[in-house]
Design a protein around this nucleic acid. Structure first.
Length: 475
RNA sequence: GGUCCCAUCGUCUAAUGGUUAGGACAUCACCCUUUCACGGUGGUAAUAUGGGUUCGAGUCCCGUUGGGAUCACCA
């Protein structure tokens, strides 16, 4: 049988990392078996719907390369793929389930809590008095327009048992299971009902989801069994944590996929990193594209303990991806960050020095601040023991540097480096005693992306001479 | 609280019941060097805890501790 998985997010805002990882594993599970990956939007809770959230889901999946075979926008043989458009389809199944004895009508109302003759509190989900209402009477009340919900009926004796691909055999007493609402009074199904109906109707073979569903899965199995449907294969995933105590969540403003991209992380690096959060290939390699992952992914290597999202390692990995980019591609990605760069700056040269030095595109700003405006710097910056330089050396050497560079016609790193090396030899000083003061004069910073001659190339001849003059005026 | 789940370096993780417990990030040292990076070499660092089972336990069993999840007309 062809493997079919689905990603079924609810459109409630930004796409967070845990969600994306779930989508990735669902995609990889399907693709590694030559199966289909389906996208379904679960919007049965109209109160939580966020405008534009569906588009974010589409965009995110597309930019990381998780292409769905069926979905709201492209259709498919099992549509529609948005639950609100499937609304009318659920009620008949709910009524059918009542007939089969797997559910009952409940008229308790929103409050859910009532008191019996002895004054004891009755909570429907534990022991629903409505279960005792004869079916005929219930149907009469519904026909008369009385509001109702369909509530799952659970025989509270015995143990439920199922196998999860990650966690193994899970056993839970039926007594622990609540008789939850399946069909709400507004006619919409709850997640608990809709996911079962939709997964079955859409032919989903493997249900992949967060492990928070581990305890409620027996309730879904009860429904599959009552309907006489085959249960899917379950793959529950461990949680992605922010730290040892807290789950990564969008509520407390933890990084979403969009946030990371905005900070200058590459989608390829993000997806690579999260693929390894809870799964490993069994080898020591760790740089993988999505298409490589499709070939080597296996559920057996999924981990069951929670993993902490480590942005430090993500940053390292992003640096690996940045360095692996070809120069033209890096330059194209860096361009937006050069928007406020002054005229005359050699941007290609700037990209060349930046590429091996940054780990996120967002670091471009701090790396290039001295280009926009030469900082006010202390003359003590010219001091460097290892290079044997100080302000006095700078004062002696810089006029010669200025003269040499003013005459220079070929403005490339190689030519400038050779020229200044020759100058050092001619002056009888170490290379560093020429290069170090020059770099300080050009940047006003202790550390810079690239050396003196590389900065000169980036700044251009005119600006280079101007900055040397400024330094000389102060020395 | 009931129930379910989890537990190897700081972090992500590897290890047919038999390895000096391996790798990566981070960190430290050194090398390279035109500052800083990149790159290279090396170091520090882990089986939560107590009992079993076994010739032998990170691995199997039980307890303890710690952590997480769940108990909505949310998903």
């Amino acid at each position: 049988m062809k493997v079919r998985t689905r990603f079924a997010p609810s459109p409630t805002g930004y796409m967070h990392i845990g969600n994306l990882r779930t989508a990735l594993y669902e995609y990889l599970l399907a693709k590694s078996a030559g199966g289909d990956f389906i996208l379904r939007i679960e919007d049965t809770d109209q109160k939580r719907y966020v405008e534009g959230a569906t588009e974010i889901i589409y965009d995110t999946l597309k930019t990381v390369g998780l292409h769905w075979d069926e979905g709201p926008d492209i259709g498919g043989a099992h549509g529609p793929y948005v639950q609100s458009e499937r609304k009318d389809l659920y009620a008949p199944y709910a009524h059918k389930l009542v007939e089969l004895g797997g559910a009952h009508y409940c008229f308790c109302g929103e409050r859910e809590e009532q008191t019996d003759e002895d004054g004891n509190e009755i909570i429907c989900k534990f022991e629903d008095p409505c279960k005792k209402i004869p079916l005929e009477e219930a149907r009469r009340r519904i026909a008369a327009g009385e509001p109702y919900v369909v509530r799952q009926t659970i025989n509270k004796t015995g143990k439920s048992k199922y196998e999860d691909k990650v966690y193994g055999i899970i056993e839970i007493d039926y007594d622990e299971l609540d008789e939850g609402v399946l069909l709400k009074s507004d006619g919409f199904p709850t997640y608990n009902f809709a996911n079962v109906i939709d997964d079955h109707l859409m032919g989903i073979t493997h249900v992949v989801r967060g492990n928070e569903y581990l305890p409620s899965t027996p309730k879904y199995n009860l429904m599959y069994d009552t309907f006489g449907w085959q249960r899917p294969v379950y793959v529950h995933l461990p949680t992605v944590m922010k730290d040892a105590q807290h789950k990564l969540s969008k509520r407390n403003g933890d990084a979403s996929f969009q946030d990371l991209v905005a900070k200058g992380y590459l989608p390829e690096a993000i997806i690579n990193y999260i693929a390894l959060l809870g799964w490993n290939p069994g080898t020591e390699e760790e740089i993988f594209s999505v298409s490589e992952l499709e070939k080597i992914f296996s559920v057996e290597r999924l981990n069951k303990s929670p993993a902490i999202f480590d942005s430090v390692k993500l940053t390292w990995m992003n640096g690996m991806y940045i360095r692996a980019l070809n120069a033209a591609e890096f330059h194209r990605l860096a361009m937006p960050y050069y928007a406020d760069m002054p005229a005359g700056i050699n941007l290609e040269a700037l990209s060349r020095v930046l590429q091996p030095r940054i780990e996120t595109l967002g670091q471009i700003a701090e790396q290039t601040d001295f280009i926009r405006a030469l900082p006010e710097y202390d003359l003590a910056l010219f001091d460097n023991k290892k290079m044997k330089t100080d302000a006095a050396v700078a004062k002696a050497v810089l006029p010669e540097v200025r003269r040499a560079l003013a005459e220079q016609s070929e403005w490339t790193n190689e030519a400038l480096f050779e020229r200044l090396k020759a100058l050092a030899e001619q002056l009888g000083v170490k290379n560093g005693q020429v290069l170090y003061p020059t770099r300080i004069a050009l940047s006003g910073k202790e550390t810079t992306p690239g050396g003196a001659t590389e900065l000169a190339v980036v700044l251009g001849q005119a600006e280079t001479l101007l900055r040397l003059d400024k330094a000389l005026a102060r020395l």
